[in-house]
Lab assay of single mutants.
Amino acid sequence: LKKGSQVEALFSYEATQPEDLEFQEGDIILVLSKVNEEWLEGECKGKVGIFPKVFVEDC
């Protein structure tokens, strides 16, 4: 996944840490960066945070 690409949430993700990005199933997320193999940083609904890659798929 490249910076600036968009992904769609397959499942809702509930934030458990302040840096987490919370979203609902079906939301479109703009990928800002790759944190590591399992986590991405993205923006959704004006909020920025990190989230697990397994919760999303390429649009």
Rank of each mutant, 00 (worst) to 15 (best):
L1R: 13
L1T: 03
K2R: 12
K2P: 13
K2T: 15
K3F: 11
K3Q: 03
G4M: 09
G4I: 15
G4Q: 00
S5T: 12
Q6M: 12
Q6W: 14
Q6R: 12
V7M: 00
V7L: 03
V7W: 00
E8P: 08
E8H: 14
E8R: 15
E8G: 11
E8D: 07
A9Y: 00
A9N: 05
A9R: 03
A9H: 06
L10C: 06
L10F: 05
L10N: 10
F11W: 07
F11M: 11
F11E: 04
S12W: 04
S12M: 07
Y13E: 05
E14N: 13
E14C: 09
E14D: 12
E14P: 12
A15K: 08
A15S: 13
T16Q: 10
T16N: 08
Q17V: 03
Q17N: 11
P18S: 04
P18F: 03
P18N: 12
P18T: 04
P18K: 04
P18M: 09
E19Q: 10
D20F: 11
L21S: 05
L21G: 07
L21W: 06
E22C: 03
F23H: 11
F23Q: 13
F23N: 07
Q24H: 12
Q24F: 10
Q24G: 01
E25S: 09
E25W: 02
E25A: 14
E25Q: 14
E25P: 01
G26K: 12
G26Y: 00
G26L: 08
G26F: 11
G26R: 06
D27R: 08
D27C: 08
D27V: 00
I28N: 13
I28D: 13
I28W: 12
I29Y: 04
I29C: 05
L30R: 15
L30W: 05
L30H: 15
L30M: 13
V31H: 07
V31N: 11
V31T: 06
V31W: 04
L32Q: 11
L32V: 09
L32A: 09
L32I: 12
L32N: 14
S33H: 04
K34N: 09
K34M: 08
K34A: 08
K34C: 09
V35L: 11
V35E: 00
N36Y: 02
N36W: 02
E37A: 07
E37T: 10
E37Y: 08
E37K: 00
E38K: 03
E38F: 11
E38I: 11
E38G: 10
W39T: 02
W39Q: 01
L40N: 00
L40A: 02
L40M: 12
L40Q: 04
L40V: 06
L40I: 10
E41T: 05
E41L: 14
E41D: 12
E41V: 12
G42Q: 03
G42W: 08
G42R: 00
G42M: 00
E43M: 12
E43C: 03
E43R: 05
E43V: 03
C44L: 08
C44G: 07
C44V: 06
C44H: 01
K45D: 13
K45E: 00
K45T: 04
G46T: 00
G46D: 02
G46S: 00
G46R: 07
G46A: 08
G46K: 02
G46L: 10
G46M: 04
G46H: 01
G46E: 10
K47H: 03
K47D: 01
K47R: 11
V48D: 06
V48K: 14
G49M: 12
G49H: 01
G49V: 00
I50A: 10
F51I: 05
F51W: 02
F51S: 08
F51Q: 00
P52S: 04
P52I: 02
P52K: 04
K53Q: 01
V54I: 11
V54N: 12
V54G: 10
F55D: 07
F55K: 04
F55E: 01
F55C: 15
F55H: 09
V56E: 07
V56L: 04
V56I: 01
E57V: 10
E57S: 14
D58A: 14
D58P: 14
D58L: 05
D58M: 10
C59N: 09
C59M: 15
C59K: 06
